[in-house]
């Protein structure tokens, strides 16, 4: 039964990933990535990482993808995204290289033998509940945890500084929508 779930989830993950890479509309690509991320969250649950499955849905499929979709809408969603590549044969090269990489990684991975019975390892994970992960996070890894919180703060401040418009810059207003005021019409 778990093999059946794995095959279904793997098909979902790979289909979503292919849509992300191939779709000509950027919004479709982003939605393909959402499908991949949700299927990955379900895969995490089958791997006894329940907390990570929930975080994957909330942070990745929720927050990060909303940010991506906002930016895609803000920029140029309708333009063709794989238009005229300066290197003519890059698609064939990428497909060849990707197939070679996938084959090599797959062959290496299938040679892996589990160091101990899987049920034993899964039991040691205590289902990967928030309590179990949080205990590790706030005892052994408390310094990386604090460093990451500082990093998040820096990222938020940095992104605000990056996109903040200088106050006196009238040329930043798009020309298609001139700002009309009643005073000018009267003058």
């Amino acid at each position: 039964m778990s093999a059946f779930f794995f095959v279904v989830l793997a098909v979902l993950i790979i289909t979503g990933a292919l849509v992300t890479v191939i779709a000509s509309n950027a919004v479709h690509a982003a939605l393909g990535l959402v499908a991949t991320l949700v299927a990955l969250a379900m895969t995490y649950v089958t791997l006894d990482a329940h907390f990570l499955g929930a975080v994957q849905v909330i942070v990745y499929a929720g927050a990060i993808m909303v940010l991506f979709l906002f930016v895609i809408m803000l920029l140029d969603a309708t333009r063709p995204v794989t238009a005229h590549n300066p290197v003519g044969f890059v698609n064939e090269l990428a497909a060849l290289g990707g197939a070679a990489l996938a084959g090599a990684l797959g062959l290496i991975a299938l040679g892996w033998r589990d160091p101990r019975p899987l049920a034993e390892g899964a039991a040691a994970l205590r289902n990967g509940t928030p309590g179990a992960v949080g205990e590790t996070l706030l005892t052994r890894f408390v310094l990386p945890f604090e460093a990451v919180s500082v990093l998040l703060l820096v990222a938020v401040v940095g992104s605000i500084v990056l996109v903040k418009r200088p106050v006196s810059q009238p040329s930043a207003v798009p020309e298609a929508q001139p700002i009309e005021s009643g005073e000018r019409a009267g003058a």
Binding site: A10, N85, V90, A94, L105
Partner: peptide, 21 residues
């Protein structure tokens, strides 16, 4: 575990194709 690692490898390769194309 080997099947999950293989799936991870395929996913990584697809991502690489995307970065290239």
């Amino acid at each position: 575990t080997e099947w999950y690692i293989a799936l991870s490898g395929v996913l990584f390769a697809i991502g690489m194709i995307g970065v290239m194309t």
